[in-house]
Simulated assay, not measured.
Amino acid sequence: MAWLVLVISGFLETAWAIALDRSAGLSRLLPSVVFVVTLVLSMAGLAYALRDIPVGTGYAVWVGIGAVGTALVGMLVLGESASLPRILCLLLVIAGVVGLKIFH
């Protein structure tokens, strides 16, 4: 259960990062509310998962999922560069996250 909550919390990290960007410095109400709600849920999920998962592993997986998710949304939705080197770097992050799970 802890791993499932951790993965969901990683996706919520992506949501709050995108909402923070869309909030224009917390000056737009709806994206700011989405940011706060998803941030709190993401942190609460991370806290729950860390009861059973070591902090180094849990935090790295949470950040990795959030970073890869945010970069993918940036590339696929927000028009950021999707160059081969960027994609290869994201694959390395994914490999690291999978490795942390396998060797937990």
Rank of each mutant, 00 (worst) to 15 (best):
I53H: 15
I102H: 06
V98S: 09
L91T: 04
S9W: 10
R22S: 10
E80Y: 01
V34K: 11
M1I: 11
L41K: 02
G66T: 03
F35Q: 00
A17T: 10
A24T: 07
V55K: 08
L6G: 11
S23N: 09
S83Q: 11
C89P: 05
L41Q: 03
W3Q: 09
Y59W: 12
A95K: 03
A17M: 15
L72N: 01
A95T: 01
L100A: 12
L76T: 00
I8Y: 00
V36S: 04
L92S: 12
L4H: 02
L90K: 03
A24E: 14
L41M: 12
T38F: 04
L20R: 11
I87V: 14
A47G: 05
V33W: 10
A2C: 06
G79S: 04
S23T: 07
G69T: 00
I18V: 15
K101G: 15
V40T: 09
A19E: 10
G79D: 07
L50I: 02
E80R: 05
V98P: 13
A17Y: 09
G64I: 02
L84Y: 15
M1Y: 04
R86S: 12
V36N: 04
V61Y: 01
M75G: 01
H104S: 14
W62Y: 04
G58K: 02
L6F: 04
L91D: 13
V7G: 03
G10P: 08
I8G: 03
V97S: 13
V93F: 00
M75H: 00
I94D: 15
V68H: 03
S32R: 11
L29S: 13
W16N: 04
H104C: 13
V7K: 06
S32C: 14
L100K: 08
V97G: 05
T14Q: 11
V93E: 02
L78E: 05
W3K: 10
A49W: 03
D21Y: 09
S81N: 07
L20M: 14
H104T: 09
R28P: 08
T57Y: 08
V37W: 08
L46M: 11
S83G: 14
V73H: 00
L76G: 06
V98Q: 14
A15R: 13
D52S: 15
L6C: 07
I18R: 12
V77I: 14
L12M: 14
H104M: 15
I53V: 07
P54G: 11
G99Y: 05
G25A: 13
L12P: 07
V68A: 08
V34R: 09
S32I: 07
A95C: 09
G79L: 02
L90W: 07
F11E: 05
G56R: 09
I53S: 12
L90H: 03
S42L: 11
S9N: 10
L20C: 11
L4K: 06
L39G: 09
L72A: 06
G99R: 00
V33C: 11
V68W: 12
A44R: 07
M75C: 05
V36W: 05
R51E: 14
L12D: 01
M43H: 01
V73Q: 04
G96E: 05
L12E: 03
D21V: 13
V7P: 06
V97T: 04
L88C: 13
L92Y: 02
L46Q: 04
W16E: 00
R86I: 06
